[in-house]
Nucleic acid binder design. Structure first.
Lengths: 199, 199
DNA sequence: TGGAATTGCGCAATTT
DNA sequence: CAAATTGCGCAATTCC
């Protein structure tokens, strides 16, 4: 019933972005409620600060925000680190990817066996499992964050509407008073203009 | 300099949600600008309307929004359709998943070989490639949508601040006029209270 | 009916 | 070094 619930989403949202010491001053204000600071932030989730991705094929990401990212890989993915995909995983990727190793400088050679990670090793499986858990956790977090942002947007839109309404009321009330004052002015035949200048 | 650019993000955002015949009436209004309708919408991207997911392991998704989704799979994923993950893909899932086939009703039997899709078949590869393209496209779209929502939120927050400011100004101006009127009232010794009731 | 769009999953490269 | 991110491809399902 009260309005202490208006900015609940914004509260949650704030807790979803622990980094960068929020201002978030005077959230949950009066009436239409909440007007945290926010500034930039909120843009961090995707390709935040560091330029350059890792995988070769990810150059496409650089030109994101445009609708030309999909499209069958341009057949020039030479410098791809470890061929990114999986399909077979185990090894022997099988096809569609030629072997340019003999033409690469030794310093840029392919995926260095790095101490023979040896698949199906106990340690390997353990690492994979931990990563899988981390991935699930991370994605859950991302989903929640997105959801919160959406809800926040909806709420803000709602508040906006209320505020606009309030402005309309105030404006009308102001006009009424001004009219009354002008009437009194004519009636009383006195001086002293209505303070239009101050605001 | 002008304010005709204020709601640009909202415009883009709107175009990112083609479905559900937007109201979006009078966007790009005056002063603080834009206040589209929005309603629910915007919640559609994740597990929109249909209940029930497909993969077996996805039951976890049902209880999302809480922080208990990750955690190593509870070892009771019996009714999983095709074991969801990949790791090996080819076939012979290999490990960690016992075979309960002999205990399942024929109607719930495992992944029916479905005409031996035979890996590395030309048709298979073609289908996979198309799907991969579709996936990239879809994810690009999702990323753009998220970005737009975030920007929209930022913009709405900004507008909110402006509106609150405006309300402050109007309120103050109103107080001033009321004060002036009360003064006149005392001075003129007339009746007629200030119109508090009308608004 | 079939192809495109979604979505969870695991993998591997990178970041943090 | 371990956890967190993130792009990728796979497969199941849904949408159209």
């Amino acid at each position: 019933m009260s309005d202490s619930r208006v900015s609940s989403v914004i509260q949650e949202w704030a807790s979803a972005y622990p980094s960068q010491a929020h201002s978030l001053n005077a959230v949950t204000s009066s009436q239409a409620g909440s007007t945290g600071q926010l500034t930039q932030m909120d843009m961090i989730p995707y390709s935040q600060s560091q330029g350059m991705m890792r995988g070769g094929a990810d150059d496409r990401v650089a030109e994101q925000m445009m609708g030309l990212s999909y499209l069958p890989y341009s057949t020039s993915c030479v410098g791809n680190t470890s061929n990114a995909g999986s399909t077979n995983h185990h090894q022997s990727h099988g096809s569609t990817q030629q072997d340019f190793s003999p033409f690469l400088l030794p310093s840029m050679r392919g995926p260095v066996p790095k101490r023979s990670i040896s698949k199906d090793s106990a340690e390997y499986r353990q690492r994979r499992e931990r990563n899988n858990i981390a991935v699930r956790k991370s994605r859950d977090k991302a989903r929640r964050r997105i959801l919160l942002t959406q809800q926040r947007a909806v709420q803000l839109q709602d508040e906006n509407q209320k505020l606009q309404m309030r402005i309309g009321q105030l404006t009308q009330e102001l006009d009424t008073l001004k009219h009354i004052l002008s009437q009194r002015h004519l009636q009383g035949a006195e001086s002293g203009a209505v303070g239009e200048s101050s605001i």
